[in-house]
């Protein structure tokens, strides 16, 4: 038994150096999604890879490696062979907020990756309970000033999108509400609908049905343009808070050192997927924003990561939110 193992590991070493770039891909590609199956990032990954697999002629298999706000999966992906057969779906948390939240992070979002391209942006909305005594953002801000210390903000746990974006929102409007943590968006929304907590910020895909159903109020959407899914919700700019621009983006990365032509091939497949009508429609159904051509390049993704890290680090550190 031992001899066989040794022989096989020896062959493994040889094969790894032998086969390379130009025929890529010759076998299925693994995409590590650092969240559980069924979550927003997983859904985006599955929609996008569905089309990418067809372009590349090889199946992209999704492996969900969840844990520690997504950093477990990204750490593993960052440390894997940079041969193009392991890629990952990163997002605002893992490649933006993580360095501030996890001081012991084993990767550097700006240095340890070969960016492939942005896949989708998910707008963030400011929502409040149905009984909230204000009907627009201005009224909300006035109420917050007048009732400091009485307002509760819900969030889906330290490190979640709703937590980071909520902290950012509070720092911009200079409010210090009492934070109430939930395990995930579902229970937080439930208490928001029951008028137990006052407001929260979260991704459109989670809150849109409740806004449409009249169970909660939406004050503004933090994007430059209104969303076709919620045409009545004004943008933060329209509502008078232009500084609050934030989106929970998802993007494809490969480990650092992945050959340039493989990165190019993967980027090409991603761009093609984002031009596909069906893929576009499926992403738009979720309230996702399809990146423009300029936003789809590896270079612009690298810039996005750098600016996100620079933006989140001071905000989250000031709020004392660390998950060390």
């Amino acid at each position: 038994m031992k001899k066989v193992v040794l022989a096989l590991t020896a062959v493994a070493g040889l094969a790894a150096t032998g086969a390379q770039a130009q025929n890529y891909p010759t076998r299925p590609i693994t995409m590590i999604v650092p969240f559980a199956a069924g979550g927003p990032t997983d859904v985006v990954a599955r929609i996008v890879t569905d089309n990418m697999s067809r372009t590349l002629g090889q199946q992209i298999v999704i492996e969900n490696v969840a844990g520690a706000g997504g950093t477990t999966g990204i750490t593993r992906a960052a440390q894997s062979q940079p041969d193009g057969y392991t890629i990952m779906m990163g997002h605002m948390g893992t490649h933006g907020a993580a360095p501030a939240l996890y001081p012991n992070l084993k990767y550097d979002p700006t240095k340890d990756f070969a960016p492939i391209g942005l896949a989708a942006g998910t707008p963030i909305l400011i929502v409040a309970k149905k009984d909230f005594p204000a009907n627009d953002l201005k009224g909300f801000l006035d109420y917050m000033k007048a009732n400091a210390g009485k307002v509760n903000m819900a969030h889906a746990g330290v490190g979640s999108v709703s937590h980071s974006t909520g902290i950012l929102f509070n720092s911009i409007i200079n409010a210090k509400p009492t934070l109430v943590a939930y395990r995930g968006t579902g229970p937080a929304l439930n208490d928001l609908m029951a008028n137990t907590v006052d407001y929260m910020t979260d991704q459109i895909v989670n809150v849109a049905p409740q806004i449409q159903g009249g169970n909660i109020k939406a004050f503004a959407i933090a994007t430059p343009e209104r969303s076709p899914a919620l045409p009545n919700v004004p943008t933060t700019k329209e509502a008078g808070l232009p500084d609050y621009q934030v989106s929970a983006w998802n993007a494809v990365f490969a480990p650092k050192g992945t050959p340039a032509d493989i990165v190019k091939k993967l980027n090409g497949a991603l761009v093609k997927a984002l031009d596909d009508e069906n893929t576009k429609k499926r992403l738009a159904d979720l309230g996702g924003v399809i990146p423009t051509n300029a936003e789809r390049t590896p270079e612009s993704l690298q810039k996005l990561v750098e600016s996100e890290v620079a933006r989140w680090t001071p905000v989250l550190k000031a709020a004392g939110a660390t998950a060390e």
Binding site: T9, V11, A15, A16, G18
Partner: peptide, 8 residues
């Protein structure tokens, strides 16, 4: 299996 096996 180990990736190398494909080589056989």
């Amino acid at each position: 299996f180990p990736q190398a096996l494909t080589g056989l």
